[in-house]
Amino acid sequence: MKKLLNIFSLTISVAFAQDAASVASVQFSGEGLSDLETKTLYNYFMGELEKASDGPLLAQETVDQSVSSLELTTTDCFKKDCLFAAQDATSSNVFLAGTLKFSKSKYRVKLYKVDSTKPGKSKSYRIRYKGDTDGFITELEILAWKVMGKEVPSRLNDKRKPNQETMFEQIAENPWAQRGAVLAVAGLGASSYLKNTAGAAESQKKIDSLPAYDTGGIQAHTDSRDGAKSTATMSLVLTAASLAYGYFTGVFTE
């Protein structure tokens, strides 16, 4: 009987632990850093995430094994469907995944979060930091608290270091600025397309209205029509290319 009670108690404990471990996180996909550097920085993030979470985190080894064959891991897919599939595989209430890049003396993090309390939705968080590694680590630790919707401890806020990005860099890499630039180019292209299409049609009308013997006038309007058509085609290509760039680089999904 005592043995049965022990087994029952162990089963209940395991089940409770699984329920409590409602937060799962996959190690950041790194670029521009060694695997060891990426893992070390990720561990700083996880250290604060554990403090910010109401319950214990799902063991890293368990998470890694659960998502190893999913597109999230095999193709670095961070679309909603890929995130939801990983969340289901880990049976977690909150699932986190993201990228960590280092280039041109600048750290960039993009973290994705899906939460079972907000079905069908994902949220992204960004860090863009230029400065020493200690300053970036502090930003990572602060991010952990923000992701969990908790107030950032004063011990972290007090040791923040200024981001050394210039004003131009901040504007150039701002998602809204990028989106505005893409839409502006697309808008100019569309406007040019409409204007030149109308111009080509007007030239064609004039060609049709001229007598056959007015070869000089016909040729002049033909050249004008063909030039307008060529410009309209290039404008349409520019519009399509700018929108495609925005789509494939994620400008419209930030």
Results as ranks from 00 to 15, higher is better:
residue 123 K to F: 14
residue 34 S to I: 00
residue 243 L to H: 04
residue 225 R to E: 09
residue 27 Q to G: 04
residue 191 S to C: 15
residue 174 N to W: 03
residue 216 G to L: 14
residue 128 R to D: 01
residue 236 L to Y: 15
residue 115 D to R: 03
residue 89 A to Y: 09
residue 38 T to I: 00
residue 73 T to G: 00
residue 246 G to P: 12
residue 214 D to F: 15
residue 232 A to D: 07
residue 7 I to K: 10
residue 147 V to M: 15
residue 80 K to V: 10
residue 182 V to F: 00
residue 93 N to R: 15
residue 124 S to I: 05
residue 254 E to N: 08
residue 148 M to V: 11
residue 18 Q to I: 10
residue 182 V to K: 00
residue 15 A to P: 01
residue 145 W to S: 02
residue 99 T to M: 12
residue 44 Y to H: 13
residue 83 L to K: 09
residue 185 V to N: 03
residue 154 S to C: 02
residue 13 S to D: 06
residue 26 V to M: 09
residue 93 N to I: 06
residue 82 C to R: 05
residue 243 L to Y: 05
residue 133 T to Y: 03
residue 212 A to S: 14
residue 83 L to Y: 08
residue 193 Y to N: 10
residue 234 M to K: 06
residue 100 L to E: 01
residue 53 S to K: 05
residue 129 Y to P: 04
residue 91 S to K: 12
residue 194 L to Y: 05
residue 178 Q to P: 01
residue 72 L to I: 08
residue 172 A to I: 01
residue 250 G to S: 04
residue 41 L to G: 11
residue 250 G to T: 02
residue 13 S to H: 08
residue 104 K to G: 06
residue 183 L to W: 00
residue 104 K to Q: 11
residue 122 S to M: 11
residue 135 G to N: 06
residue 148 M to Y: 08
residue 243 L to R: 08
residue 102 F to S: 14
residue 117 T to K: 14
residue 192 S to R: 03
residue 193 Y to K: 09
residue 117 T to D: 08
residue 85 A to Q: 12
residue 2 K to Y: 14
residue 156 L to T: 00
residue 31 E to F: 02
residue 39 K to M: 11
residue 175 P to A: 09
residue 53 S to V: 06
residue 46 M to R: 10
residue 183 L to K: 03
residue 60 Q to E: 13
residue 126 R to Y: 05
residue 42 Y to H: 13
residue 103 S to M: 11
residue 13 S to G: 03
residue 135 G to V: 01
residue 163 N to R: 04
residue 1 M to W: 10
residue 34 S to V: 03
residue 212 A to T: 10
residue 233 T to P: 07
residue 236 L to S: 13
residue 61 E to I: 05
residue 199 G to A: 15
residue 254 E to Y: 13
residue 223 D to G: 04
residue 126 R to H: 02
residue 191 S to P: 01
residue 37 E to M: 06
residue 31 E to H: 10
residue 136 F to W: 08
residue 26 V to S: 06
residue 70 L to E: 04
residue 229 K to E: 11
residue 254 E to L: 09
residue 193 Y to D: 05
residue 246 G to S: 09
residue 66 S to V: 04
residue 40 T to Q: 02
residue 17 A to M: 12
residue 193 Y to A: 07
residue 237 V to G: 05
residue 241 A to Y: 11
residue 244 A to W: 15
residue 1 M to L: 08
residue 86 A to P: 15
residue 138 T to V: 15
residue 35 D to P: 03
residue 225 R to V: 07
residue 136 F to C: 08
residue 35 D to M: 06
residue 79 K to S: 10
residue 132 D to N: 13
residue 79 K to I: 14
residue 118 K to S: 06
residue 246 G to V: 11
residue 133 T to F: 13
residue 223 D to A: 12
residue 171 I to E: 13
residue 160 R to F: 03
residue 253 T to E: 07
residue 55 G to V: 07
residue 160 R to H: 02
residue 202 E to D: 14
residue 128 R to S: 03
residue 153 P to M: 06
residue 228 A to P: 09
residue 207 I to K: 07
residue 80 K to D: 10
residue 49 L to W: 05
residue 239 T to C: 03
residue 95 F to N: 09
residue 96 L to K: 00
residue 62 T to C: 02
residue 171 I to G: 01
residue 119 P to I: 03
residue 69 S to W: 12
residue 211 P to S: 02
residue 150 K to D: 01
residue 44 Y to L: 02
residue 47 G to D: 11
residue 13 S to K: 12
residue 12 I to T: 11
residue 157 N to K: 06
residue 82 C to T: 01
